[in-house]
Design a protein around this nucleic acid. Structure first.
Lengths: 161, 161
DNA sequence: GATGAAATATATTCTAT
DNA sequence: ATAGAATATATTTCATC
């Protein structure tokens, strides 16, 4: 709940951990920020307990791991709302992400991954069982992410070499 | 290029690293898989060099870090295609993800993050400068991700307690 | 916040199965 | 391809300034 008190050192930490959460040590980040590793470690702990850092995750190439199908499912919640609707959707096997959209109708964007269509069909079924209407399904050909540029003090173009 | 040879141990490794890429040691994963830590380390190295693991990234709550605006920009590529179009888009400041969609018209889904609308407007402008048409913009209220259930041998519901 | 030393954990290399 | 043992390195924890 202690929002907004993110200074440049915090941003540099967030950027570094977005670049490589597994191999970036506190000492490495300390060099970048001109602080000490113990300071960095304390900052990280604070960012974690404040919920600014939600976790650390490996980004997997699902295509190469044998799950070439990535699907976007646009859903409409028929029932007004339930508290843990998002959690329930995340628990569906094959779902990797849920986003609440601020459009009137299609207010949930669910991303599902699978081997074939027959993996995604039951996901859609489970969503229906929850009282959701699947308004549209879109296949994703590729998906790439990048660290957030505004956490990087040096350049604002995404290039930090 | 060595796809498809992902066995159960690999899946367990991927799942573990999706759960916590920073604090999950090779030894921890070895316990789960009933193998040794040296085996796990070699597997991870292979998964990394094969590109199955693309990287390790901290998931940041942009809202709590002072960037409450998350926007989906649906784009159409006017020019047929260019090889590094996606890379160029990822390099735009504020862009955190690009997905190629397999629909006819709106074939690119760009996710941008910012402090206010005035952070997202220049992103749309840069996309235009690249020859892209921004067909639609959708505000995202929340965004959550989860490890891929099919990497988890135990349960297929997303719950592993 | 920063520093330094002790304790712990982790990674690397090599050897063997 | 996996596991084990030894060494080297890195990281965390804690006391201190």
């Amino acid at each position: 709940m202690t929002d907004e008190k993110i200074d440049d050192v915090d941003k540099a930490i967030l950027y570094a951990l977005q670049e490589d959460a597994r191999n970036m040590s506190s000492g490495d980040i300390a060099e970048r920020t001109g602080t000490s590793d113990s300071t960095v470690r304390k900052r990280i702990q604070r960012l974690e307990s404040d919920g600014v850092i939600k976790g650390y995750s490996a980004s997997v190439d699902y295509q190469k791991s044998g799950y070439p199908l990535r699907m976007l499912l646009y859903c409409t919640a028929a029932i007004p709302e339930r508290g843990d609707l998002v959690s329930d959707i995340l628990a569906i096997d094959g779902v990797v992400s849920v986003q609440e959209l601020v459009t009137g109708e299609q207010n949930l964007l669910v991303t599902a991954v699978g081997e074939t269509d027959s993996d995604v069909t039951p996901v859609a079924q489970e969503l229906l069982d929850m009282g959701l209407t699947v308004a549209d399904e879109v296949l994703v050909r590729s998906h790439e992410t990048t660290p957030f540029g505004k956490f990087n003090s040096k350049t604002q173009t995404g290039d930090d070499s």
